[in-house]
Amino acid sequence: MYHKTTGYRIFSACNHLFLITLSILCILPLVHLMAVSFSGPAPANAGLITFWPKDFTIEAYQKTFDNPNFLNSTWISVQRTVLGTALSMTVTTCAAYALSKEKVLGGRNVYMWYFIFTMLFSGGIIPGYMLITKLGLINTLWALILPGLVGVYNIILMLNFFRNIPRELEEAAVIDGTNHFQTFLRVYLPISMPSIATITLFIIVGHWNAYFDGLIYMREVEKLPLATLLQTIVVQTDFSNMDPETVKKLSQRTVKSAQIFISLIPILAIYPFLQKYFVHGIVLGAVKE
């Protein structure tokens, strides 16, 4: 037995140490971020914080929530995430169900290539921007939802899952006299929950983290989703359309950290629950046949 040998034991000990160090390195920046956000401004600006707050205070969080733009942007992000995910999932699962019926759906391959071509080639950001302008969607929530509504990769993931559902289940439903809509709703959806959860997670994270569409399609600070607001405050440090008093508050090191940390909370909150699903989902999409 190889794992009883001395050589393997030494390797195993080093290996554990290495892997554990590496995985701690993956969250250390977040720990530092949190420590800074709960520290007093003086030690934070002097760079004295490592992984534990100094002069513990929640002042940075109070300042963040005093800023009406922050709450407003959070609300916009919540709206786009909920509405966008619901619409995306409806369109994706319906299309995937139909496309999984290889033998029944006429012109299935035409449909498939129609979708796949958009994965291979796109007009680029400038024509996309012009289209949104022409449609009059600038400064509306729809500009953040509609362009990314159909995720071709998600359709493919979903249809591969649907294809692996045993035919007996469908046949049983057919004998009960159901049509396609009913089979889809009562047979396919309920037993596909793991992959639906996977794709939902990806879409939620995608919406919550999306900043670029807000940057180019939204022209007023009141309309920015949270990720874009953060991008302008933390990364670009572009304060051109905010009043100087707010700017002074927001640009402090501790307040910046607090804002970033708050934006992470939804992701951190759903992550553990959905972890078991996404691992399963990815594997399904990547390794098949």
């Binding site: 319906c94 139909a98 979708f115 159909v150 359709i155 049509n179 396609h180 809509f181 889809f184």
Partner: peptide, 10 residues
């Protein structure tokens, strides 16, 4: 019905 289901995505 199947064609109708792909329609929104199309």
């Amino acid at each position: 019905m199947l064609h109708l289901m792909v329609l929104p995505a199309v």
